[in-house]
């Protein structure tokens, strides 16, 4: 009996999570302007998508920002994660984790005020900088958890056997935490590509990203085109998360 109850609540939870997504995906193939009833199967919304210049431009921006931001955040976040692990400082972990918990809207507003204060024109650069800022913490956490799972004595053994501190890092520590770094990079990429709130505040008038573009479209109505682009975005992020959990199961599953 409790077993069945457990199974039932599990199924309910999954339905709750995925049913709305399934609906979006389904309507993206629906041959009707209205998200009301199923008419028939079509690829036409996807075709419209690839003919929509604004959408393509936004997608290009999103990809550029996500690639740049995740790369920079991975380098900085890895260094931060290593420092967190190596020097057991009291305050540093809190300071690097806090931005993950601070409401995004606050981060967005404060970044906007900051960019205005330093006279930075809002656009691709300001969005990218903001994304780097909020991704560092996530990468740092993933890398740190990978380091925490590594036997302390391994880099020591390397030193003991004649490796300089740098050689010990390059030949032993780095290869062992590489899956964590890669997982952190994928996580940063997915966070960046679908971020809305912070992007909204730091985008200015010129630059748009996919989430901003979708938002501006649904101000009028939720068109099937929005369903189509949402489906593609969802597929991409799902794919990346699956890969991330494959290469570094414990850090993504929060072991």
């Amino acid at each position: 009996m409790p077993k069945r109850l457990l199974a039932a609540s599990g199924i309910a939870a999954y339905l709750f999570l995925y049913l709305p997504l399934v609906i979006v995906v389904a309507y993206s193939f629906n041959d009707s302007r209205l998200n009301a009833e199923w008419v028939g199967f079509t690829w036409r919304w996807y075709k419209a998508l690839f003919e929509d210049d604004a959408m393509l431009k936004a997608a290009g921006n999103s990809l550029f920002i996500a690639l740049t931001a995740s790369f920079a955040a991975t380098v900085l976040g890895t260094m931060a994660g290593y420092a967190l692990h190596r020097y057991r400082l009291r305050l540093l972990p809190v300071l690097i984790m806090a931005p993950l918990a601070i409401p995004e809207i606050l981060v967005g507003v404060s970044l906007l005020i900051f960019f205005v204060a330093v006279n930075l024109t809002l656009g691709l650069l300001s969005i990218t900088l903001s994304h780097i800022a909020f991704c560092i913490g996530f990468v740092a956490i993933v890398v740190r958890s990978r380091l925490a799972g590594m036997d302390e004595s391994l880099p020591e053994a390397a030193r003991d056997l004649g490796a300089s501190p740098w050689q010990a890092f390059r030949l032993v520590t780095f290869p062992l935490i590489a899956p964590g770094i890669l997982a952190g990079a994928l996580l940063a990429f997915t966070l960046s590509i679908d971020d809305f709130v912070i992007t909204f505040f730091t985008a200015g008038v010129g630059a748009s990203t996919l989430p901003l573009q979708i938002y501006s479209m649904i101000k009028i109505a939720v068109t099937p085109e929005v369903n189509a682009v949402s489906t593609l975005l969802m597929l991409l992020t799902l794919f990346l998360i699956v890969i991330a959990s494959r290469i570094s199961p414990d850090s993504v599953r929060g072991k």
């Binding site: 036997d151 004595s153 391994l154 020591e156 053994a157 390397a158 032993v172 062992l176």
Partner: peptide, 8 residues
């Protein structure tokens, strides 16, 4: 080392 610390 007690854990052997072989590089995995």
């Amino acid at each position: 080392f007690q854990s052997y610390a072989l590089f995995p």
